[in-house]
């Protein structure tokens, strides 16, 4: 069975993928849909959805179009999610691979270092980092990467350890390949599938983290994001529900989409692990 065929047997995953493509398309088309940008004050404040022509989701506390904020917010969420995940992989994968492959004191050092980060609650550490570095898109992405790499290192280490014990690795050693060649050419390619699955879920977590930071007022003040929209609407939640409802919905749907995709990838990449009844 090909990868796509296996993936598409999971209907939820297909739904997630469609949803994600939709969000990506909206993010890319934002400047064409709303050329004035998300901060333009276009109408009276506190207009409910569909109250005024063209303002399908109403206006916020300053009379800004909620829909244009959502559309531009999609760019930020996806960008932060993607880049911070890539950064986390860049830290976690090499560290985990070295630890798992060499073992011994390398493993000890790497794992103690990882545990050091794991003992601090993710979100608390992210808040501290952003507060110290001053909130900006760069510092938020960096902080999210810094709090998300430890599980990657753990996973990669475990995978590398198990792969290293396989016979073809012994064969590679006997063939006289250098350690680095074996690690990069033989071991890592065989650990890719769980990393991909994990990465898709990490993007979702990163989006949630970014939203939470913005909600607390630690977002980049120059950038419209979903978390900012919810946070700014918090004080008026009793008079203007739509200000927090729609960005919240956007966050839920995007995170859901990524989780469904992760599940689908898991099924597709690890057919042996598929749940009973579906294989």
């Amino acid at each position: 069975m090909s990868f796509w065929k296996r993936f598409s047997t999971n209907r939820g995953a297909v739904f997630g993928l469609i949803l994600l493509f939709l969000v990506i398309a909206i993010a890319l088309l934002a400047p064409f849909m709303f050329p004035r940008g998300p901060w333009a004050m276009v109408q009276r404040p506190f207009l409910a959805p569909f109250d005024a022509a063209g303002l399908y989701l109403g206006t916020d506390t300053l009379g800004r179009d909620v829909l244009s904020g959502l559309v531009y917010g999609a760019r930020v969420s996806l960008l932060v999610g993607l880049i911070s995940t890539v950064m986390a992989l860049c830290i976690g994968v090499p560290l985990g691979a070295l630890a798992g492959f060499y073992g011994g004191w390398v493993d000890e050092c790497a794992m103690r270092f990882t545990e050091f980060f794991q003992t601090i609650p993710n979100f608390a550490l992210a808040i501290v980092l952003v507060a110290i570095l001053e909130p900006s898109l760069g510092s938020i992405t960096l902080s999210i990467a810094i709090v998300s790499w430890p599980p990657v290192a753990r996973l990669v280490r475990a995978e590398v350890m198990s792969v290293t014990k396989r016979e073809y690795i012994d064969a590679a050693r006997l063939a006289g390949l250098s350690n680095m060649k074996i690690l990069i050419g033989q071991v890592l390619p065989n650990t890719v599938s769980p990393i991909i699955v994990m990465a898709s879920l990490m993007v979702a977590t990163a989006i949630l983290l970014e939203s939470s930071l913005s909600f607390l007022g630690l977002g980049d003040p120059n950038i419209m994001s979903w978390g900012y929209q919810v946070g700014a609407a918090r004080t008026v939640i009793r008079t203007a529900w739509w200000l927090s409802f729609f960005p919240g919905l956007a966050i839920i749907l995007t995170v859901l989409a990524l989780n469904l995709i992760g599940e689908g990838l898991n099924d597709a990449l690890n057919p042996h692990l598929s749940r009973k009844g579906r294989a």
Binding site: W39, T61, L62, P221, A232
Partner: peptide
């Protein structure tokens, strides 16, 4: 607080 944040956003715009 929120009022002052919104105020600055309006100025920026």
């Amino acid at each position: 607080g929120e009022t002052w944040a919104r105020w600055a956003e309006a100025v920026k715009q």
